[in-house]
Computed example of a mutant assay.
Amino acid sequence: MEKNSSCCFSNLSSNLPITCLITFITIFLRRVLNVIYRTGKPLGKRVSPQRPLSTLIVLGSGGHTAEMINLLLVLRKERFTPRFYIAAATDNMSLQKARVLENSLADSSETRGLSAEFMQIYRSREVGQSYVTSVWTTLVAMAHALWLMIKIRPQVVLCNGPGTCIPLCVIAFFIKVIGIRRSSIFYVESIARVKRLSLSGLLLYKLRIADQFFVQWPQLQRKYPRAHYVGCLM
């Protein structure tokens, strides 16, 4: 009898880690599905329509920053504040343009006293970098993105295609899954993308990471029906 009891206890002990693992995976997957289901929903009833929202703005080299600046010009500055601008560590020009924008708003009565911060993030992969070495740089970029997101804890993430937005958006999605903070991710595809999405846009669209996905050409909206056509913003 004692031998049988000992065997049963041993079996239970050996199955306990597997049971805990299955339970954890089940809870995690349910949480992921719940976050995906809520994608596109408003921030919530607790957020007042007049309450400022901390906003993370991802800038990129080339035309990405120019498009983002044009978008920010029509944004309600008093609503989306404080603003945190992030660009790649090797991209100083984008942050300079953002500083010029914020300086031009400094004398405005509606934005006086509102804050803006400027930060840089490591790139996952530089242009021409081999895929082998990019594994390490991607891990470093993800760790840096995690640190920045925990530090900023934005309520809104605004991006339009640079590769630097991917680790930030993934971390924002993961933070929503574990329930630390809900960040609404707004992605505006570049006007240069007429027939198909950029790699960044395709990843965020297919993985359902972006809460709201906007395109500037009607044929893109027909090809990707969950996207919203907003016309040309430039």
Rank of each mutant, 00 (worst) to 15 (best):
G62P: 01
I86L: 02
V135H: 07
R112H: 08
E110T: 07
M68E: 06
N103S: 06
V157G: 03
E110Y: 09
I150C: 13
G113D: 07
L139S: 10
T90R: 03
P49I: 00
I121T: 00
R153L: 10
R51D: 01
W136E: 01
V135N: 01
G60F: 03
A145R: 13
F84V: 13
L59T: 01
V132A: 12
T164L: 07
A116G: 03
S104P: 00
N70T: 04
V157R: 04
Q96P: 00
A143R: 13
S54D: 01
E78T: 14
E78F: 10
S115N: 12
C169M: 04
L72T: 08
R76C: 04
K97R: 15
S61L: 06
F80L: 10
R79E: 03
L146V: 06
I86Q: 02
R46K: 14
M149I: 14
P49R: 11
V127P: 00
L101H: 14
T137F: 09
G63K: 10
Y122P: 00
M68Q: 14
I152V: 14
S61I: 03
A141N: 07
T164M: 04
D91Q: 07
L95P: 11
P49F: 09
L71T: 10
L105N: 11
N92P: 00
A66T: 11
R99N: 11
S54E: 01
M119Y: 05
R123M: 03
L53F: 09
Q129T: 02
V156H: 04
M93E: 08
L95G: 06
S109I: 05
F84G: 00
A66D: 01
T138N: 05
K77S: 08
I150T: 06
T81L: 05
